[in-house]
């Protein structure tokens, strides 16, 4: 960190290629670059190991390669996540949850590389993802249940005089879903990266004793990698729960 540079400078968007389309600025920025890298990495990581997959004819063909095992791990992880939260009907939504999880996970993880850019640390990106999920599950609920979907806001088994109080609360909690979903991810990424930068500033400022914040940074980096995974997991599991709510109401 250069002197006087804000720890928030790492979140600045820098255009790489200026593009103007119908008056809209859709420049290819560092954010877009890391989205490209993330997308390319996920596609390569999960597709390439299975391109040359041969038919299983004998026991020796059963052993998957290392890359296949790694890809299977991710596949089975999301598979069991969906099965546990939504059940059998959840299979249809597997590609969506898988894409969301992997996109956010590798976005977060690549953000841990020094000098890289974390596109999930931008509220506009996380809000767009969360709104996408929100609109998707709302439409799904209406397609599955029609007008009956509104009964989702009525908690069953509650005395009638409580309803005027609780229905607005339920509606507000439903509407705040995309906000909580997006802010959780954004704030975690923002706080983690800022904290790392601040302590990195102490390393050079303290001279010899800079070794103390350096040790702290090393530990914090481990924690941040955990959070990178955890936040992607939280996003995916909440998406699953919302899908479950839309499918089964209560």
């Amino acid at each position: 960190m250069a002197k006087g540079e804000s720890p928030l400078k790492q979140f600045e968007i820098q255009p790489i290629v200026d593009i103007n389309f119908l008056g809209f600025d859709i420049s290819f920025t560092n954010s877009a670059l890391w989205m490209t890298i993330t997308t390319a990495f996920i596609l390569i990581f999960f597709t390439v190991p299975f391109l040359k997959a041969k038919k299983t004819n004998s026991v020796s063909d059963l052993y998957p390669t290392r890359m296949q095992v790694a890809a299977e791990l991710g596949f089975n992880f999301i598979n069991s996540l969906l099965a546990d939260t939504v059940g059998k009907e959840g299979k249809k939504y597997f590609p969506l949850v898988f894409t969301l999880f992997m996109f956010i996970l590798f976005g977060n993880l690549f953000g841990m590389i020094p000098y890289s850019f974390t596109f999930t640390s931008h509220i506009i990106v996380t809000l767009a993802l969360a709104m996408g999920v929100f609109i998707f599950v709302t439409v799904l609920g209406f397609v599955k249940h029609g007008v009956k979907f509104f009964s989702f806001f009525v908690i069953p088994g509650l005395p009638v005089y409580m309803l005027p109080l609780l229905i607005p609360i339920e509606i507000i909690s439903y509407l705040s879903r995309p906000i909580s979903l997006s802010v959780r991810l954004f704030a975690n990424m923002l706080a983690g990266h800022t904290l790392l930068k601040v302590f990195a500033g102490f390393v050079s400022a303290l001279g010899f004793f800079g070794i103390l914040p350096l040790v702290f940074i090393i530990a914090l980096t481990g924690l941040e990698i955990l959070i990178a995974f955890l936040q992607a997991y939280v996003f995916a599991i909440l998406t699953c729960l919302y899908i479950n709510d839309a499918l089964h109401l209560h």
């Binding site: 290819f28 391109l51 596949f75 506009i124």
Partner: peptide, 26 residues
């Protein structure tokens, strides 16, 4: 707008390729 645009582009690309090629293969 740039961020939204590229997010949309890459999410759609990722989703489509995963849905129609990668995940069925796995």
């Amino acid at each position: 707008i740039s961020q939204l645009f590229w997010l949309g582009v890459f999410f759609v690309i990722l989703f489509s390729v995963l849905t129609y090629i990668t995940l069925p293969k796995i």
